[in-house]
Design a protein around this nucleic acid. Structure first.
Length: 671
DNA sequence: CGAGGCTAAGTTTTT
DNA sequence: CTTAGCCTCG
């Protein structure tokens, strides 16, 4: 995209000091505005270290970095660009007294912690831990206490009030921070220490924020603290693309920007869309028409022409996937680049069928969203050893691997260790270290624990001695015979292969990170907790499969938008909430914006797909209703197609299939 | 006392 | 399809 800037973009890029809010419609070149403004500031002599850009995902941060470097050369490398959470972690690391390491707990870790706490509660009913997590996180994000949760009525609100102080105390005891703490702690630190605050304000002279509509209350306050009176905050966002309300994002940050948060701020709007053909944009505008919006925008494009948006109704979810896979193979056969094709969907489940089809057809793809490699069991297990080596307080890591691979330590042994730790006021790992001297342990347990402690100590000593984290990881894995255990435990050979591959992936990542010694290693482990994405994902010419949430900021020549059915989009739970849901996150309008985000990813061609019948796993297939968002679109904007994967193929189609199949065969036997 | 196999139940979106 | 909890066997 080497268009000259339009007047609105130019004004945004030229914005000098003071707060600014740039309302940037989808595809209006917002990343370009941010990078160009940074480039401009650099050219005018601002040192790179005085700029800080904040994004929401590591992926977005990496991309922005790339674009900045492309624009203004190696100087761009020295500009700070990171996620809010990475910024928070970095600030803490720099501000904390040396040697005070902390662990970052991800959702799985905090779920384990909460499960522990709930055991205290009598009655052995099973609680929905995720529901608790959501409430606690919500309360923290809003900078409130759980007292702010509605009284009575919902038992999970009561449960959250009960758990909250215990949860916070446990984190403190474990020297652990959850994701929300990565914002809250720096905020508290800057609020309480004027010297530190001023130092950071001097250091960061220009703050730039991408996807500002997704910020929560705590993040806004952190921004304010960093910006200081100077208020050099340049926030770019689109209220129409606000899709993280469920995570505490507060649109009030946008709505009250110029009045409450940054009085007198400049407001600019980017409405020209450089991405989509007219028919696609017409659909996007139609989706939002008549909605109550904070800043009503009507996107316009100078890219007329293009084909109508196609609504495909398949007979089943399998048919839906089949249509997509066939269409992709056809496109690729016509010479389209795979990286120009995106498959989008509301929930991760929907990707399965398409994935399978692509694998069968030998079409390379990359997956965005879903469980990352670092959340995989075997990877987390190995990481737990490393965490424990750096950080003996990390009881969650300890519990995770104390009997993995199995070494004769069961519930009873663990309870005895706990009792000893409690009686002596020591942390649990001390009890484990002293297991040899505990008379009431079984010989098997004592021996198992002895071996366990030796492994952890060896890892600790190696790291303290300055060895590379990657090497230590391999040594730990070898010492506990992780490969062997994974191999023996796997239900099927392909599953085992995938798990071993995940471990290799971890080694490779750790090697690339190149960390040595305890400090660097702790930093790398924190990054991994934040699901730090690998650079290698974007490599190669691959079809992209992504959740709608993961697709923000991406664009494709052709988009296949799966699951335009009621119950999927909008998701059933927005319409019929459960007792475990945090009521304030439920909002059908957010689902509409999600639809809007999906539509606006497409440049040339958009397929909206639905299935007449959908069956859950093992559940009886049920007839579906078209998504209300689809149903509300003016008919003249759409081309409707019915797809029956069972129907006999027209002869020319059949011939094409046979050819493709032969080619695939030839390729396979060649490779 | 622990391991391993079995059943049952639950799957929105993510830093 | 996966995980967590239950139950039985060694």
């Amino acid at each position: 995209m080497s268009f000259p800037l339009n007047p609105a973009q130019r004004a945004a890029v030229a914005h000098d000091t003071g707060p600014a809010l740039v309302l940037a419609g989808a595809g209006s070149g917002k990343t370009r505005v941010i990078t160009q403004r940074m480039a401009r500031l650099l050219e005018q002599g601002t040192p790179p270290g005085a700029l800080y850009a904040v994004t929401f995902t590591n992926k977005a941060a990496a991309e922005m970095h790339e674009r900045l470097v492309a624009q203004c050369g190696p100087r761009g490398k020295d500009v700070w660009i990171s996620t809010f959470h990475a910024l928070g972690g970095e600030l803490l690391r720099r501000e904390m007294p040396r040697g005070r390491r902390f662990v970052v707990y991800d959702a799985a870790d905090t779920a384990g912690l909460l499960r522990e706490l709930l055991r205290e509660l009598k009655g052995d009913r099973r609680y929905d831990v995720a529901a608790l997590q959501a409430r606690i996180s919500f309360a923290k994000n809003a900078l409130g206490s759980p007292d702010a949760l509605p009284e009575g009525g919902n038992e999970y609100d009561d449960l959250a009030r009960w758990a909250f102080p215990r949860y916070e105390a446990a984190l403190a005891r474990l020297h652990a921070l959850d994701f929300d703490d990565l914002i809250l702690w720096p905020l508290r630190h800057l609020t309480e220490n004027p010297d530190a605050r001023e130092a950071w304000q001097r250091r960061i002279r220009y703050l730039l924020v991408d996807e500002f509509q997704d910020t929560n209350r705590a993040q806004l306050l952190l921004l304010k603290a960093l910006a200081g009176d100077r208020g050099n905050v340049f926030c770019v966002g689109d209220d129409d693309q606000s899709i993280y309300g469920w995570r505490g994002a507060d649109l009030g940050n946008v709505l009250d920007f110029t009045t409450t948060h940054f009085p007198g701020a400049r407001v600019l709007a980017l409405e020209q869309n450089y991405r989509s053909r007219t028919p696609i944009l017409d659909v996007a505008n139609a989706v939002m028409e008549g909605q109550v919006r904070a800043f009503p925008k009507r996107l316009f494009t100078d890219r007329p022409g293009g084909e109508k948006v196609t609504v495909v109704t398949a007979e089943s979810s399998e048919g839906e996937a089949k249509f997509v896979v066939d269409a992709i193979q056809k496109l690729v056969g016509q010479g389209h680049r795979r990286r120009e094709i995106g498959v989008l969907y509301r929930s991760n489940l929907l990707s399965r069928a398409v994935e399978e089809g692509l694998r069968l057809g030998n079409v390379p793809y990359r997956l965005i969203g879903g469980t990352s490699v670092y959340e995989r069991r075997e990877v987390k297990d190995l990481l737990a050893y490393l965490r424990l080596a750096l950080h003996p307080e990390d009881e969650i890591a300890l519990r995770r691997v104390i009997n993995y691979p199995t070494r004769g330590v069961g519930d009873v042994t663990l309870q005895r260790l706990e009792r000893w730790a409690l009686a002596h006021g020591k942390m649990l790992f001390r009890a484990v270290e002293g297991a040899a001297g505990l008379s009431d342990l079984t010989p098997a347990a004592r021996e198992g624990l002895g071996g366990f402690v030796r492994v952890v100590h060896a890892a600790r000593d190696a790291l303290e001695g300055g060895r590379a984290l990657a090497a230590v990881a391999r040594e730990v894995a070898a010492a506990v015979r992780l490969r062997e255990d994974v191999t023996a435990a796997g239900p099927t050979a392909p599953v085992v292969a995938r798990r071993l591959q995940n471990l290799e992936h971890l080694y490779a990542t750790l090697e690339r990170a190149g960390a040595k010694g305890p400090e660097e290693s702790a930093k790398v482990l924190t990054k991994l907790s934040l699901h730090y994405a690998d650079a290698d994902e974007a490599d190669g010419d691959k079809v992209t499969l992504s959740t709608l949430h993961g697709s923000k900021g991406l664009e494709f020549g052709v988009v296949f938008f799966l699951g335009c059915d009621e119950g999927i989009l909008p998701h059933a739970r927005t319409d019929a909430p459960r007792a475990t849901d945090v009521t304030s996150t439920l909002d059908v309008s957010e689902e509409r914006r999600l639809f809007y985000v999906g539509v606006t990813r497409a440049r040339e061609r958009l397929y909206l797909l639905r299935a007449r019948v959908r069956g859950g796993q093992g559940k009886a297939p049920r007839a579906t209703t078209p998504s209300r968002f689809l149903a509300a679109l003016p008919g003249e904007l759409l081309e409707r197609v019915s797809y029956d994967s069972q129907a006999p193929l027209p002869p020319e189609e059949l011939a094409a299939r046979v050819r493709l199949f032969r080619e695939a065969l030839a390729k396979r036997s060649a490779g």
